[in-house]
Design a protein around this nucleic acid. Structure first.
Lengths: 346, 346
DNA sequence: GTCCGCTCTTAAAACGTGACAGCACACGGA
DNA sequence: TCCGTGTGCTGTCACGTTTTAAGAGCGGAC
């Protein structure tokens, strides 16, 4: 028979209630939960029966208070609507699930103030550790966390000075792969579309593209930089309009975009202006999000091991939280070019 | 002067430590935190100074334990990679932020077992309430939560019997809007692409499309149902191949898709098979995700008030958690058709 | 001098769990 | 009969916070 609080207004049953119902002490109930082998079969059954009847659910706050730390790890993501970060999150969840940790996902939405408010909350929650793609990697709030003894792993940004672990992808190499691919196909004037300048990724990928041109013996001017306000589809369209407005003779024949959203916007603008892709303009994106392959002209893009990024980050975090001999590491993954229909031999 | 634990291995400072450092009792420290007006200016300054020196951070677990409930609300989303749900999440965050509640975002990834594991975790955490787009709206685990006194709001599904609040969009009307639009443009044979059948949305939207045809006096056969295995881009491509394979005379001239991912896949397959959109095949999607407008041929789609959905859901949840006179409500929003380039007058 | 009223501060208890020392009892060997 | 040895269970304390009733100190009114 199941006895359940009728109105639902009563407070949840505690170990004390269970103990009273089963006619044992609280210590025994606790043992049933945590070291069942120490309790005789008869008593164990009685206690478990009482738990079922009362609908007992462990109180995690009390456990945490006792333990001094929680069984939760947090990922503060930069932009929940960007598929790149949701894939990273899945990698994190893979590892956390295996380690029986819950993942608290927070979305800073690119706002430093929101990010700081979340970090405060997480400190208060005494989370086991924080994975974060920060708005600003130099924010002192991050050092502050680390100083408090909370493990921190920076995701998708490299961190200078080895103050904590970080996991990222080699963006300079990625930019180089994109530009090399276009050079191999016979392009000469190549545009680089991205911005704003303060984003590390934007700079690194451009630098990589520049290296590729230099290695091929091209003058610096062969990389036409088109700066955008953000890494969004709308900005990509704007860049498309600007390129379309250039004189035919100086107009680039190919474009490397700092991410796929820009590339998709650019592609869309080209289609609507009657610029043929890839014949009039070849396009390489960056991130290889699912929608890249799904675009009307499937997008050539630089793929990053997103899920692996998340997995490794979570593993480093757990190591830092549990292994006293932990050493900070900077892990750098290698990107890979995925050629599709927006690029073709000239 | 700032005295900070050196190694970081010491336990964080507690109110007791602060009290000792400031030469007052713990009660006074607590008052400084929660009712500063009760404490004299001198004492308050002394305590705050001590907090700064020790790097004191409130322990949320202990607060929760005392309070009996947390200041967190959770959203269990069906699929973190679907932009629809991330937009709903933003709406929830808007409201939660204003109410000074944190949002715990969990991704069930369409797996019932994972969903259940999260619900257990959330019960253990004594969250204030749970917002959920369930894998299966009839899962007894949901009733179980409600019976435990945890407020539950179902998002993007209507719930029968008024056992809890729910917030959804009128899918029958949405399906009707899509089909009416195509009929207005002069189409006769219309395909409905969606599946699997067990998803309520898939059924409702098809039903709405059927109503539209019936109202226009068309025979039932004018709605060609193409069933898919899932609501993904890949399945959309498959549906495109099937439509392309139909005899010209019986092939539909327009398609209503159960969501935008299917529509984008269909669009992509058409482009690659040389079927002109919208001339050979007009396409209407559903959800109006950002990528819909960004497709190479911008997609006509049925827009749902996603963010508003999240906001209202969170408001209902907070009402249930705080207002003793709360009554369960089923809120139904009205969708809206956004005409773009994949549909045009014949 | 006594007492009241006021402001500010304190001590103690409570929340639910887990850890630990210790108690009761049964059993086997001397 | 007594001791030693387990086994199985109990009682109590600690974790960090908030809350409440009570106390200290002090100025002013009678």
């Amino acid at each position: 028979m199941v006895l359940m609080a009728a109105g639902g207004a009563t407070r949840p049953a505690s170990v004390k209630d269970v103990a009273a119902a089963a006619g044992v002490s609280v210590g025994t109930v606790s043992n049933v939960l945590n070291r069942p082998e120490r309790v005789s079969g008869r008593t164990r059954a009685k206690v478990q029966q009482a738990m079922r009847e009362l609908g007992f659910v462990r109180n995690e706050s009390a456990r945490q208070l006792r333990a001094g730390h929680s069984r939760v790890l947090a990922y503060v993501m930069l932009d929940a609507t960007n598929p790149f970060f949701t894939d990273v999150a899945r990698g994190i969840e893979d590892v956390a699930e295996a380690a029986d940790l819950a993942v608290f996902i927070c979305n800073s939405d690119q706002r430093a103030e929101r990010e700081r408010s979340y970090l405060t909350r997480l400190k208060e929650q005494r989370v086991q550790g924080v994975l974060i793609t920060p708005v600003d990697a130099d924010d002192p709030a991050l050092d502050d966390l680390a100083r408090h003894g909370t493990p921190v792993v920076i995701v998708d940004r490299t961190v200078v000075g080895g103050r904590c672990c970080s996991v990222a992808v080699d963006d300079v190499l990625g930019g180089r792969l994109a530009a090399d691919h276009l050079l191999d196909l016979g392009h000469e004037r190549i545009a680089y579309i991205g911005g704003p300048e303060r984003i590390g990724q934007v700079r690194d990928r451009r630098e990589g593209a520049g290296h590729a041109l230099a290695s091929a013996g091209r003058p610096r001017d062969d990389l036409v930089v088109v700066e955008t306000e953000a890494l969004t589809v709308a900005e990509g369209r704007g860049a498309g309009a600007r390129i379309a407005g250039m004189a035919r003779r100086t107009r680039p024949t190919a474009a490397v975009c700092a991410n796929d959203l820009l590339a998709l916007g650019l592609l869309q603008e080209c289609v609507s202006l009657g610029i043929s892709v890839p014949d009039d303009l070849a396009i390489v994106g960056y991130d290889d999000i699912d929608f890249a392959a799904a675009a009307a002209v499937p997008l050539t893009s630089v793929r990053q091991p997103r899920r692996q990024l998340g997995r490794t980050a979570a593993e480093l975090l757990i190591d830092e939280a549990t292994n006293p001999y932990h050493r900070h590491q900077q892990v750098l993954f290698t990107p890979e070019l995925v050629a599709r229909a927006t690029t073709r031999q000239r």
